[in-house]
Write a protein that binds this DNA or RNA. Structure first.
Lengths: 206, 206
DNA sequence: ATTGTTTCATAACATTGTTCTATAACTGCG
DNA sequence: CGCAGTTATAGAACAATGTTATGAAACAAT
């Protein structure tokens, strides 16, 4: 209250810049390989900024994951209106385009960093958890419900079907990401056939 | 040829002990958290042993992954004879019992270490790759073929069906491992329903 | 015993996440 | 206008960890 002091440089703009830079570096090199010093240099600041804005590497990565979830969710939202298969294809597209980030979000690699929860800033607080996964599933749940209304999907439990679909797609994508290049498989065709099979499996019984 | 020297202590017995110890530690703490010094201490030796026997942390983890694949493969082999659903349940059982190791094998986390291929010792050489995944799928492929013979599964491409099944199960398991506790889902029931749906999807068409 | 050779535990090194500290940048007042 | 007060930040110091280098230990041959 007495007197104001040195003006703030570690502001929201820098925070956003660091998020962008980190997302890029993580996508390029993976979360382990990227160092705080690199991130700081790329953002034109010092490692202190990461500590004052996020709290540490763990929280920075958490914030990046949250950032990723928003992008992924938006992508699913759009595709969700175009039906079940479109949602599946959009899922794969996003995952292949965000390789390392996808693994960080869904691969459980985040657990390696989980321990010190941040106080909960406007955005970065709280560890990425199932809540976000369920959030991200909302468009898929919507698509399943719509398909039921159209009679394409039978009257099974919606959450169960959605999770089954999600797991199917996630499994294919993570298999493709992890071992795709070294497996003699036509992933496009497999993906297509699998989506159809998934729908077939939950079609109304005659 | 001139003269023999100090007797070898870094032998195959120690190698095996280090493999066991590392597998345990990795399963308990994950591959990032476990340190070479801890491993060496737990094995009653020094970090040098890891370098002379494996080449480094990367190759040690690769060897552990290979070790894991053998165990997993054996488990699948047994279950494969009992049918498709049994294979799926055995898959899940093994994965839940080997949490971190499973992620190391199938989660793509190994890529973080991939760079220096070892010369290829009797066992640890070569990075774990798609070959092992396909190997591990063999029992599943057998089960699918058997199910086709019984008329439970239709005349679709076997590899395609097997991969679809594998992805389905892998997706469920990794979702459960990563977010299971924080999602309000009855995983047992979901697993059961999903296995049935998978079989239904590829049933012979009328 | 001495020498030579090989093996291995330990010490030194480089990198990286994190914490500490001293300086920089500003305000308000004399 | 300068000086004290205050806060933010860059950079130094610290701790941990994978890796490499070094020198001592253990044995055979002479």
């Amino acid at each position: 209250m007495e007197s104001m002091a040195r003006p703030i440089v570690h502001d929201d703009a820098l925070r956003q810049r660091l998020l962008d830079v980190t997302a890029q570096l993580v996508d390029r090199e993976g979360p382990e390989k990227v160092t705080l010093r690199d991130i700081a240099a790329a953002g034109g600041t010092s490692t202190s900024a990461i500590y004052s804005l996020f709290g540490g590497k763990s929280q920075l990565l958490t914030a990046v994951v949250n950032y990723g979830f928003r992008s992924f969710h938006a992508s699913q939202e759009i595709a969700g209106k175009e039906g079940l298969k479109a949602t599946g294809w959009a899922y794969r597209k996003w995952a292949l385009e965000h390789d390392a980030l996808y693994r960080l979000m869904f691969g459980g690699a985040m657990d390696a960093y989980a321990e010190g929860r941040s106080a909960g800033g406007p955005d970065g607080g709280g560890l990425a958890d199932g809540g976000q996964t369920i959030d991200a599933m909302a468009p898929l749940i919507g698509a399943v419900t719509a398909a039921q209304a159209e009679g394409v999907i039978g009257p099974y439990n919606v959450m169960l079907i959605a999770t089954a679909f999600w797991a199917q797609v996630h499994g294919l994508v993570s298999l493709e990401l992890a071992r795709g290049a070294s497996m003699p498989i036509d992933w496009d065709a497999l993906y297509d056939a699998t989506l159809d099979a998934g729908i077939r499996a939950w079609a109304p019984r005659p």
